[in-house]
Amino acid sequence: MGLDYKWVFWNTHKKAYDRLIVSGMVIYLVLFFTISFLTNPEIIAETVIIRAFGSLAIIMLHIILAIGPLTRLNTKFLPVLYNRRHLGVSMFLAALIHGIFAIIHFHALGNVNPIYSLFTSNMDYGSLTNFPFQVLGFFALLILFVMASTSHDFFLHNLSAKTWKRLHMMVYLAYALVILHVFLGAFQQETSVFTTATLFLGWLTLVSLHLVAAFKESKVDRFVAEKNTEGWHKVCPPEEIEESRAKIFTVKGERVAIFKYDGKLSAIHNVCKHQGGPLGEGKIVDGCVTCPWHGYQYLPHNGQSPPPFTEKVKTYALKIEKGMVYINPKAFPEGTAIPPISSS
């Protein structure tokens, strides 16, 4: 959490995370270059650079896209999510080196502008196998650039979490463009079954992880609460909620987290104001609901971040009848204090 903007709020974990990113990238590049020049001695450096950075960016993109569903399936993966934006920016830099070298190599030093050439030097837009695959890569790189350049809390706050999240969901469009770029480009000429199978396996893994995670989450949304005469939703007995933790329920299409702490119960909106993290998967730490994604905190009884922070989420009224917790589906405005109820 921060009140002002810095390039990076460094801490031990972020430093360790970045060291691992750089080490992984260096290991990949060194091995790719070594194998390329040993097994293909006539190859030229420009080709190896384009291929090394392009393939590295694709592998990194797969890892990045796997992190989200992995954390939804097992919260112990959360440290990997914590600094994912640095991984994203590193992946963009690898893709950028691939793109710049490819544009210089194939499109520069001609009698037309290299970017104009990228769109016009192959006009077979109506053909699948002859399609100008470079255009797909260019648009993917453009999306990754927008994402990388807004991967900072300054943009997150100024664009609003919702807009920022929508913008960053475009990574899936970028992924689709990248896959098409490779299958309609490199794989049309470099037709090894092993490289094709590797990328197919990556795609399959990502699709499976997303489907399994979505199925797990859909259980929460499928929950249909009984309503009492006043329209309150009957959710669960208080014993079902662990101390300092929450249970998530969907009421009126909104996910709400009911927290138990110090013998009390409070309900707040499940979506963190920072990046939309699931507050209900967080924990009460130092008396505050703590978001599992980046540690943003809210007081459970009023949904307000502790001063001097200013984030606020909606709150909900709870009551216990005949040993069951009931929630009023009508949310109070963000930051409204609601007295907690006793959990016993």
Binding site: G24, I27, Y28, L29, L31, F32, F33, T34, I35, S36, T39, N40, E42, I43, I44, T47, R51, A52, S55, L56, I59, I63, Q189, E190, S192, F194, T195, T198
Partner: peptide, 17 residues
């Protein structure tokens, strides 16, 4: 994954003349 990726993408390239 990175080692396997580098090996697969590095090794299975058409030989240059």
């Amino acid at each position: 994954i990175l080692l396997t990726g580098a090996a697969v993408f590095g090794f299975f390239q058409r030989p240059a003349v």
